[in-house]
Each structure stands twice: as C-alpha cells, then as structure tokens.
C-alpha cells in the first residue's frame, strides 16, 4: 500500500508517494533527493536528521512521512538565501566548527531553531539545546563559539 503526501519543504509545495511506515527522513532523502539530513542512528539519539516541522525542531527519523501531510518542513537545504549563507552557516565555516561535517546540517537546523526562540543564549543554554545533536569530531567547543558569533551577528542585523 502507498500513500500520496502533499507537503511544503523549504517553501516549495511537493507531493510524493510513500509507504505508510516510511520515515520523514527516508522520504526527504529517498523520495525528494534532499540528502542534507543524515541518518546517524534511526532512533532519535544523534540529531543528525534534525529538521523543523511547522517550526518545531524534530528528529525526522522519528516522524512518519505521512505526518508531513499539509505541514511545513524546513531542512538545511533551505537555510541559505540563494548565494547568501545564513549567518550560522558562515559562522560555522569561519570558526572551524565542523570537521567531518556529518552532524553539521542537524546542528545548524537545531541552532537556528534555538536562536529564533532565544536570540541571546548563554553558553550553557547553547550546550543544553544542542545536547540532542551528537558531534564526535570537535568536542563542541568551536560549535558553541560559532553559534554565539552568529547569534551576535543576527542581533546586530
């Protein structure tokens, strides 16, 4: 059995057909070719698949694709405006906040969700907010600095 799903991804209306037990992550990656969200665990423990569903941060491996019907999804692919990177994206490059980069899309999506709620977070708030996003390369130090640098830039804007 297949289900047709009509949803919005990064502002674009899209339709896809999926199995009822398919995850949103699999639909994004397999049906829509949006491979920015990664599967690190499939159990909601690593955050590499983070996207927002109607503005709420979720692990897309724990959301069924059919739940996206009529909703608004945002992924890392929608963060930059054309050639202009989002301040978080720029800050991650400038502050060397990534090494292998596999966790980066999820962390960027999560950090963006944080700064939309809390434009001036403490380091501790950043660390607790990102506690659901595993990074094995950096030790998080440069990630926290990059998020704070982007937050400062966004407050000035």
């Amino acid at each position: 059995m297949s289900v047709t799903v009509s949803t919005t991804v990064n502002g674009d209306s899209v339709d896809f057909v999926c199995a009822p037990d398919e995850t949103l992550l699999d639909a994004l990656r397999g049906r829509l070719g949006l491979t920015g969200a990664k599967e690190g665990c499939g159990t909601g423990d690593c955050g590499a698949c983070s996207v927002t569903l109607n503005g709420r941060l979720v692990c897309s491996c724990l959301v069924l694709a059919v739940e996206a019907e009529g909703q608004e999804i945002a992924t890392v692919e929608g963060m930059a405006a054309g050639e202009t990177l989002h301040p978080l994206q720029r800050a991650f490059i400038d502050h060397a906040a990534l090494q292998c980069g596999i966790c980066t899309p999820g962390i960027l999506v999560a950090a963006k969700a944080l700064l939309e709620k809390t434009p001036d977070p403490s380091d501790e708030e950043v660390r607790y907010w990102l506690a659901g996003n595993l990074c094995r390369c950096t030790g998080y130090d440069k990630i926290v600095r990059a998020v704070q640098a982007a937050a400062a830039e966004m407050r000035r804007a």
Partner: peptide, 8 residues
C-alpha cells in the same frame, strides 16, 4: 569543503 558541508 566548508560551503558544501554547511549547505547539505
């Protein structure tokens, strides 16, 4: 490889 990695 920075831009590729922050844009997915």
């Amino acid at each position: 490889d920075g831009v590729d990695k922050v844009t997915g």
